[in-house]
Design a protein around this nucleic acid. Structure first.
Length: 282
DNA sequence: AAGAATTCCAACCGCGGTCTA
DNA sequence: TTAGACCGCGGTTGGAATTCT
């Protein structure tokens, strides 16, 4: 991070962004190597400060952002993760492809905050809590079970047979009400993405956290493969040659913290339609 | 129809952490 | 070691849009 003193005293524009400003910022970022945010406004011909540009890009202009109302699944994910993490909006947004921390925060304040207190009362009931927990965890369990049967979820890599047995790390993990979206997001974590797609940031990958959203900086062929229609995170997905994902066995190790992911190991690809089908069983 | 109240969300603000000279 | 520049995050605000009376 070069720290050149910012000697230019510019009267910065504030308020809503015009389409022309959006175009200038987008064009500049897409067509140029990543510079510091404070230098971008001048180079892009904008009378904004760098902070404002950064916010506009992250929350509005970035490719891969999902607009529109939150799906039921997203809503549940927000509720679950907020229960686990509190107001860690950036953390929560990592598990919601296409959603920004700001969007999630706004959604929480306008839709969930007041209603959640009611829901909390419901979840105080052990049976209600069990029901919610089991319905969400069954998704994970079913996915892992499918994988263990040697069918399509994880392909044909060497798979242990313990994932669905009681008290295994995977079972424990699933029983803690994590949804498949969490698993999904872990595979596509910013760190791994940074390692595996260093060239897909459009000159924007100086820091892994520059693009917190796991999907945002994906190459086009991945964005095309991953369907982000309302109501669905999962679609048939065949990774191109050279991409590796953890096998269920590795996954168990990752979940339990016993193993580190070895991205060099060749494994087969994920068919997310199984997760999708599983969700429809709920 | 019109003013008031409410909702929603884009944008701003301030703080803390990181990095570099 | 320290000061200053920068970045990212969470909290807050302001105004446009919508709903209510």
């Amino acid at each position: 991070m070069g720290h050149k003193p910012n000697t230019l005293k510019v009267k910065h524009r504030r308020g809503l962004w015009s389409p022309d400003e959006d175009r200038k910022l987008r064009d500049y970022i897409i067509n140029n190597d990543r510079a510091s945010w404070s230098s971008i406004p001048a180079k892009a011909g904008l009378q904004r400060n760098g902070k404002s540009c950064r916010l506009r890009w992250i929350n509005y202009l970035r490719p891969g952002l999902k607009r529109g109302t939150f799906t039921l699944e997203e809503r549940e994910t927000v509720l679950t993760l907020h229960r686990m993490l509190g107001n860690k909006w950036a953390e929560i947004s990592k598990h919601l492809p296409g959603r920004t921390d700001n969007e999630i925060k706004n959604y929480w304040h306008s839709n969930l905050k007041s209603r959640n207190s009611v829901k909390n009362e419901v979840s105080q009931s052990p049976s209600a809590a069990r029901q919610i927990s089991s319905s969400m965890s069954s998704i994970c369990l079913q996915s892992l079970k499918t994988a263990n049967n040697g069918s399509s979820l994880m392909g044909t890599s060497s798979v242990g047979t313990t994932a669905c047995q009681p008290d295994t790390p995977a079972t424990k993990f699933a029983s803690e009400t994590l949804t498949p979206k969490l698993l999904f997001a872990e595979w596509f974590s910013p760190d791994r993405r940074q390692q595996e797609f260093p060239d897909f940031l459009g000159g924007y990958g100086e820091h892994p956290n520059d693009c917190l959203n796991p999907i945002t900086s994906f190459p086009d062929y991945l964005l095309e493969e991953l369907s982000f229609e309302e109501g669905s995170f999962c679609s048939n997905f065949n990774a191109p040659d050279g991409l590796n994902f953890p096998s269920p066995y590795e996954l168990q190790g990752l979940i339990s913290g016993e193993e580190e992911f070895d991205s060099t190991q060749k494994i087969d690809y994920i068919n997310f339609s199984d997760i999708h089908e599983c969700k429809s069983c709920l």
